[in-house]
Write a protein that binds this DNA or RNA. Structure first.
Lengths: 166, 166
DNA sequence: AATATAACCGAACCACATTCGATTGAAAAT
DNA sequence: ATTTTCAATCGAATGTGGTTCGGTTATATT
């Protein structure tokens, strides 16, 4: 094996394992991100390929982690969660931030990120009603090291989805 | 049919059609919200019911709209979207708000809500990089009637999911 | 030119979703 | 109290669709 082959192999590893997505892959991803219950027969019509070919591609996309999984989307209101709110929590210490991260296992919390900017932690909360939101807010505000909490209550939702391949 | 029967029928319509969720329903919903690819056999073990019984319940939950659908979750980074940002846009007119709602069909926009509080429109954006975010921001800031845009760039994401039945 | 590899196809297979008929239990009507 | 009705469940049978397989083509490499 010539020395240059080592380089080609390395490139192949990088080029092959991490997903290089062509337009067909993106079409499949878009279709499944919209509705994961579509059959391979249906997908095969969209991309003009056979069902096994689509199957191979989906398998590869899952193996490479481009498709992280499939989930059922539930109706928050029908579950009794009528109030969507975004919280921007300004913390003064790292220990306070850490305490906030523990709120990730609350059922009403849907997203939790640390952010740059004047707020430190960003939380998406879907509470049952204003009362339970108030309870939640009180709990956060009473934490040691929490400077301020700004709440943005959602009035209407026009779009809510995951990452798109387009 | 006695006059009182009309009332019972009305009550039945309300009690039966809109979902009244028992603990088994919630377990099923939780399992599917986490991983919608679970088989009915698997679900039947979780809730100690037969597969057809679980099937009936899932069918009912879909019919009632508690389960809105199933979607594939994609990896934003592997799609080339590395920068998650939350925007709070303060508008001075309704026409400006309407113009912002049109951004719902941009591929990098994942959520779009109107909110109460000082900001008017809330946008979750997953852009390829800082450059494309800047382009996006410029476009919004240059809209007639947009007073200010506050950006919160996500550093780390600790939780990101949909409504939970718990 | 020869070889290896990846992507694709049609056909066969098999697992799982779905349907069916029967049974139970609980509530409503007589 | 007895009968009727209805919803929920089950085991067994069915059928669609996911999955595997062997063979073919096209491309890239030696």
């Amino acid at each position: 094996m010539a020395p240059s082959d080592k380089e080609t192999d390395a490139i192949r590893q990088i080029k092959h394992h991490p997903a290089e997505l062509d337009s067909i892959d993106r079409k499949i991803l878009g279709a499944l991100a919209e509705d994961a219950s579509r059959s391979y027969a249906e997908l095969s019509k969209i991309v003009h390929l056979s069902a096994p070919a689509v199957h191979d591609r989906v398998k590869r996309l899952k193996r490479d982690g481009v498709i992280k999984g499939t989930v059922a989307i539930l109706d928050g209101c029908k579950l009794g969660r009528t109030l969507l709110t975004f919280l921007l929590v300004d913390t003064s210490s790292y220990s306070a931030t850490r305490k906030l991260l523990a709120f990730a296992d609350r059922p009403e919390v849907e997203e939790l990120h640390t952010v740059a900017g004047d707020g430190c932690v960003f939380i998406k909360v879907r509470a049952a009603n204003t009362e339970s939101l108030e309870d939640f807010l009180m709990e956060i505000q009473s934490l040691e090291g929490v400077r301020s909490v700004r709440s943005y209550i959602a009035l209407s939702t026009f779009l809510e989805r995951g990452p798109s391949p387009d």
